[in-house]
Design a protein around this nucleic acid. Structure first.
Length: 417
DNA sequence: TCTGGGGTCCTAGGACCC
DNA sequence: TCTGGGGTCCTAGGACCC
């Protein structure tokens, strides 16, 4: 049996855990640059749709006394780790699926599954203040469905087991296909065109036809609806295969110079993650684009620059990023966003050496990078940095209503008067 | 003035091998 | 006029997730 534990309104709940004034009040959390709504407390859901652009909803915010906060990802990541730690005390086999969700295996867990999960839920709430819901089923896809059921039905006390459904087929008939995990906008549209609207129809669809008309993943989803597991629990502790750092600017950027600062900065952020998982990368890819909404003309492009040798030496990554940027930069546009991807990620002892560049000094570079990483870990990111990241950073994203780093900075600890 | 920032996996097609 | 049968690896792009 697979269980899915999912935090309710996670970002909004994190803010509430540290700010009692937000209790029972509608709360929304905004994306970076305070652009659009990415999390809502249950009270706010009545008034504000997911993804709503904040500037269009100012009136609603005021009318309903909605507390509006900028996203504080440092806080959310820390809370997520705490919840994971508690979960690990209950079960061994865990896959951290996202910042607010984990799958775990209940096989071999003694006692009643539902009681066990209720105890976990209670413990998480008591220790962190975050309410969670748990769905339990033979497959991940069904566990997702049970999780939603637990969230929507108070009488479940936050935990729901698939086999407790009295009439599963009737239940699935009322569930639109687009609510099924891994059935998104495109696939549900195509399913609808073939007359498949509800999840019971999807469950009983012809396997051969599904495989032919869609991908193997959709077949897996259908199989999982039939209680046969196809998506295994994955090892979420492994290294990332891609690393990305991307952010829109607080103001429009026109000059190459400012874009270079941003690309250098984002490359450094991505490098932080590369160092943390002790990997090397083979390619640096850079993307830039204008706003979708401006009349000034739309431009979007990216370029992937191969490194001569796979490395984790930051100056080489930045140089590659800047080279890629020069390939795609066109003057005369108002740029709104830059992205940096690190691709071709491998373990450091598995990098392919370059036949023509045999004297790449890994030893020396490794030493230098480790020192930089250590100093920044102790003193804060960008304590030591390459000059190309810039100092003024006028393009920096806005985040005007961000709460304190309650749990990760000594200077911002919660004080109680 | 203003619309996020991350990730994963799969597939088709091209380039190449013998 | 005719030009095999079998592979691998890589990349771009598309679909999905939160």
């Amino acid at each position: 049996m697979i269980a899915l534990v999912d935090c309710n309104n996670f970002f909004a709940s994190c803010e509430r855990a540290f700010n009692p004034k937000l209790k029972d009040k509608p709360v929304v959390i905004l994306s970076s640059n305070d652009g659009c709504v990415i999390s809502r407390s249950s009270e706010a859901k009545k008034y504000i749709p997911m993804g709503a652009p904040a500037y269009q909803y100012e009136e609603e915010f005021n009318k309903h006394g909605i507390a509006v906060l900028s996203a504080n990802f440092t806080l959310y990541a820390d809370m997520s780790n705490r919840i994971n730690k508690i979960t690990r005390q209950y079960v061994a086999d865990i896959e951290t699926y996202s910042i607010d969700e984990s799958f775990f295996n209940l096989k071999g867990i003694p006692g009643d599954y539902v009681e066990r999960c209720r105890a976990l839920r209670k413990e998480v709430l008591k220790s962190t203040g975050i309410p969670v819901s748990i769905g339990i089923a033979p497959t991940k896809t069904l566990a997702k469905i049970c999780n939603h059921y637990a969230k929507d039905n108070k009488d479940t006390q936050g935990v729901f087991l698939w086999s407790h459904l009295s009439n599963k087929d009737e239940f699935l008939k009322k569930l639109p296909v687009e609510h099924v995990w891994n059935v998104g906008y495109k696939i549900s549209k195509r399913l609808n065109e073939s007359g498949i609207y509800n999840t019971y129809q999807l469950k009983t669809a012809d396997y051969t036809w599904i495989r032919k008309a869609f991908s193997v993943n959709t077949l897996r989803t259908v199989t999982e609806l039939n209680e046969i597991p196809c998506f295994e629990l994955e090892n979420s502790n492994g290294p990332r295969r891609n690393i990305m750092s991307s952010q829109s600017f607080g103001k429009s950027v026109t000059t190459l110079n400012e874009l270079e600062e941003a690309v250098s900065t984002y490359t450094t952020r991505a490098w932080d993650k590369l160092m943390e998982q002790k990997s090397a990368c083979g390619y640096v890819s850079v993307g830039i684009r204008t706003s979708y909404h401006k009349d000034m003309g739309f431009y979007s492009n990216y370029y992937t620059q191969a490194l001569e040798v796979s490395t984790w030496y930051l100056p080489d990554l930045i140089a590659a990023g800047l080279k890629a940027l020069k390939n795609i930069y066109k003057p005369g546009f108002n740029y709104k966003k830059a992205s940096v991807f690190l691709l071709g990620i491998t373990a450091r002892d598995q990098v392919n050496l370059n036949l023509l560049n045999t004297d790449y000094n890994y030893k020396k570079y490794n030493k230098l990078m480790s020192v930089v990483e250590k100093i920044n870990n102790e003193n804060g990111s960008e304590f030591i940095k390459y000059a190309s990241v810039g100092i003024q950073k006028k393009w920096r994203a806005k985040s005007e209503k961000r709460s304190q780093a309650y749990t990760t900075k000594w200077s911002e600890l919660l004080t109680i008067n």
